[in-house]
């Protein structure tokens, strides 16, 4: 079954006004269950817009988005996905545990169920001793792990992430990538992941979707043949570098076309 299906989707902001923006033009993408797909491209290529269309935080101007075989709107109402952003977006007035419990509160779970699930999620992100801390007492990487725990608290089949590690330093970032893969393997969650970083996209993904701006569209899809098990050695493998090169060429080809030059440097 396909987890996410995007068919001929276009999104136009401020249609008919002088500041009209063609954010996405005729985009099609299928994501299989359990798959990890990254969206990469320069600013303005519509990767965040595409993610928000899947999340039903935006409505497409034309075309159709389905999530788990339902309309995106129904999937949102059923909380079929969890979401994480560049800012961890934790609530400073809630303890870590209460932050994780928030989506469950909104689903109307009772206190015992919520508390048991919060324990489970704290265990999953390996921060069991921090439940009663407040978010600002945690480092940036820990806050992002709590945000992931919150996004997965209701056990959604799909996780949507918008540059979640963009504000972290390089070392923390690589550690978090490993953590995310471990968590997704443990839960079998499908992930759609927006990023600016080529190595990050390749390390995490089964497929990397390269996008280009004006109008936002998909220009290339790179299959990453690194297998399921990934660790620090993965970053030294030839297949890793080959995939990075393929993504980079996808991005560069678009850049060369954009400035009107041939791809003559190679």
């Amino acid at each position: 079954m396909t987890a996410v299906s995007v068919r001929n989707v276009s999104k136009v902001f401020n249609q008919g006004k002088p500041n009209q923006v063609d954010a996405l033009s005729n985009v099609a993408l299928d994501v299989k269950q359990g798959e990890f797909v990254s969206l990469i491209g320069p600013s303005g290529c519509g990767k965040s817009t595409l993610l928000r269309l899947v999340a039903n935080l935006l409505e497409p101007t034309s075309g159709e988005v389905t999530v788990n075989g339902k309309t995106a709107a129904q999937a949102r109402l059923d909380q079929d996905y969890g979401m994480a952003f560049q800012q961890a977006g934790l609530f400073d007035w809630r303890t870590v545990r209460k932050n994780i419990e928030l989506p469950l509160e909104l689903k109307g779970w009772d206190k015992q169920q919520r508390s048991a699930r919060a324990d489970e999620m704290l265990q999953l992100v390996q921060l069991p001793e921090f439940g009663d801390h407040y978010p600002w007492q945690l480092s940036g990487g820990m806050q992002q792990r709590i945000a992931i725990a919150r996004a997965l608290a209701a056990h959604p089949p799909l996780l949507l992430m918008d540059e979640p590690f963009g504000a972290l330093d390089e070392m923390t970032r690589e550690y978090m990538q490993g953590e995310l893969l471990r968590i997704c393997a443990a839960t079998g969650t499908t992930v759609v992941f927006v990023t600016h970083s080529i190595p990050e996209a390749v390390y995490l993904s089964n497929r990397v979707v390269v996008m280009s701006p004006r109008p936002g569209r998909i220009t290339k899809v790179v299959d990453v043949s690194l297998g399921g098990e990934r660790n620090e050695d993965t970053r030294n493998r030839t297949a890793f570098f080959e995939a990075i090169t393929a993504v980079r060429e996808g991005l560069r080809g678009m850049h060369a076309a954009h400035v009107g030059l041939g791809n003559d440097d190679r």
């Binding site: 935080l57 949102r76 109402l77 969890g82 979401m83 977006g89």
Partner: peptide
């Protein structure tokens, strides 16, 4: 925060 809450419907 608002986007997050909307994602929770």
């Amino acid at each position: 925060h608002v986007e997050l809450m909307r994602s929770y419907a």
